[in-house]
Amino acid sequence: MSYRILMKKVLNPTVTMMDIEAPLVAKKADAGQFIILRVDSEGERIPLTVAGYDRTRRTVRIIFQVVGATTAALNQKEEGDFIEDFVGPLGNKTETDGLKKVCIVGGGVGCAIALPVAQKLHELGCEVHSIVGFRSQDLVILQEEFAAASDRLTLMTDDGTAGRKGLVTEPLAEALKNGENYDEIIAIGPLVMMKFVVATARPYGVKTVVSMNPIMIDGTGMCGGCRLTVGGVTKFACVDGPEFDGYEVDFDEAMERSVLYRDFERHAYENTCNLFRKEVK
């Protein structure tokens, strides 16, 4: 089975958006869930969180950062090309029941995943405050879309080249201090960011949901590679998550687990880049 790329758009130098034709997945996909894809018949399986879906066009949107060999290979594909495998939707959808006022905190490419959550809550009439953070202006993505889905949007950059200078936890801390009574905070981004969003929220006791994206193979509960310690108990991100109560997640363990294949990935990425350079020549 093959899955056609119907749309490709470069969002910034390292982040790309694609709409993939996958009728069965598009029919069911919802905010918070993920898919697993393989670019070609020898490729590895990588999980990507659903960044959107269009049930009439029968497409699922993915947004990915080029960080390794597989995402580099995916980024070489153009509109009309096919990818080998695309399976989902996996994991549980974001719980939105009863939410009246929510703060969404997105970091880097995590904003791509936070956006459909913001959009869904916005459509349901929930008051949405979004705080999105990037390293620098040229990495900023999805500003218009976030603005349209948020009642209040705060843009942060590490270097101050766009929006406010600083980390996403700063405006969050201010809002909480000023007495914003959020029903929930939803944080999606790098592990270290989510860890500190939780630390910021904890003194105020505001429920904080985080979206975990650990190492994974099958995505159906078979391999156990995606396991996390949540509330002292082993949980599988693929079937129990990917969203968890941030207060309960052992982030330090998750961070240690996430770097296991870093050297392998760096070598694979360099080899892939060299290969593409040769092709260009």
């Binding site: 391999c223 156990g224 590679g225 082993t234 363990e253 240690e256 687990r257 770097v259 296991l260």
Partner: peptide, 22 residues
């Protein structure tokens, strides 16, 4: 049979601990 079992002992979350399935 799906989900791999773990023993529930300390240290099982360390990164060089795998299920046989994985």
């Amino acid at each position: 049979a799906g989900l791999p079992r773990f023993m529930g002992i300390p240290g099982e979350g360390l990164r060089n601990v795998f299920s046989a399935n994985e």
